[in-house]
């Protein structure tokens, strides 16, 4: 039987590629045959992961996604150097834990730049005929916080809710272009964000997390599997949704 998650001949742009889920996605989809275009801020880390990818034709671009106005130029450069794209995986994101009384507009704005505006701009640019191969799949990382966030996560939750709200509308707008778009609504994953959580909160909060997410903290690879599925033709009837991978958190 053929591998149903075959990504051969697909060129996929991955943001947040130097760390966490993005890193796992790059490794997995390269193994499944994709050409991976890695985008992240830290060039050195990008180069390290680049060397670990399977197959040929990958590329990496050091770029700060909070420079929204330069995203279109970046994609143009990527397409001119690597050919048109078949997919985007937006893993770049920042988390901020701030109680309401210490929230500042500037903090929300900086978080939205990376978590939401950059994703939206990438989708807009990718959807142009000149940048995609006449079809495509977009996967964006969301969070259970979009639906049931904890105290002090209001800005982060809002950014993820903005993503999920946009996904089901954009799915309809992009259907005529044969482009699907989906979010992954993830629970707590074993990444740097989780380590920060452990450093920041007391034992009581950590115990509460384990009670809610009773299947345990999610391995990055298990998110990457879902990303590969959503990128592949195996999921061709799935669009406009948030695929929940939450270890039971929302139940």
């Amino acid at each position: 039987m053929n591998n149903i998650l075959n990504l051969k001949n697909k060129t996929v742009l991955v943001t947040g590629a130097s760390d966490g889920v993005g890193e796992s996605v790059c490794k997995l989809i390269s193994n499944l045959g994709a050409r991976v275009i890695m985008v992240a801020r830290r060039e050195e880390k990008l180069r390290d992961i680049y060397k670990m990818l399977d197959g040929d034709g990958h590329a990496c671009y050091s770029f700060d996604l909070s420079n929204i106005d330069e995203i279109e130029l970046l994609v143009k450069k990527i397409v001119s150097e690597n050919g048109k794209l078949d997919g985007i995986v937006h893993c770049a994101g920042v988390a901020v834990a701030r109680p309401l009384r210490q929230m500042k507009y500037q903090v929300i704005h900086e978080l939205m730049l990376v978590n939401f505006y950059s994703y939206f701009e990438l989708v807009r640019v990718f959807s142009k005929k000149c940048n995609n191969n006449g079809s495509g799949s977009i996967v964006v990382m969301s969070s259970v916080s979009a639906r049931s966030g904890d105290k002090a996560q209001s800005a982060y939750a809002a950014s993820k809710a903005a993503i999920e709200g946009s996904v089901n509308v954009l799915a309809k707008e992009l259907a005529d272009k044969n482009i699907r778009i989906n979010a992954i609504t993830a629970g707590m994953i074993k990444t740097r964000m989780f380590e920060n959580f452990l450093n920041r909160y007391d034992e009581n909060s950590i115990e509460q997390l384990y009670n809610k997410q009773y299947l345990g903290v999610i391995d990055k690879e298990n998110i990457a599997y879902a990303v590969a599925y959503l990128l592949s033709d195996a999921s061709k009837f799935i669009t406009g949704t948030g695929l929940v991978i939450d270890g039971g958190y929302l139940t």
Partner: peptide, 26 residues
């Protein structure tokens, strides 16, 4: 409480550029 401990982490970062951890708070 846990929210004021979190607030303290934010305050240390905003006002003193110090990265306070849960272990130090204890």
């Amino acid at each position: 409480d846990s929210m004021s401990k979190l607030s303290l982490i934010v305050l240390m970062s905003d006002e003193f550029e110090k990265k306070l951890t849960g272990d130090t708070i204890m």
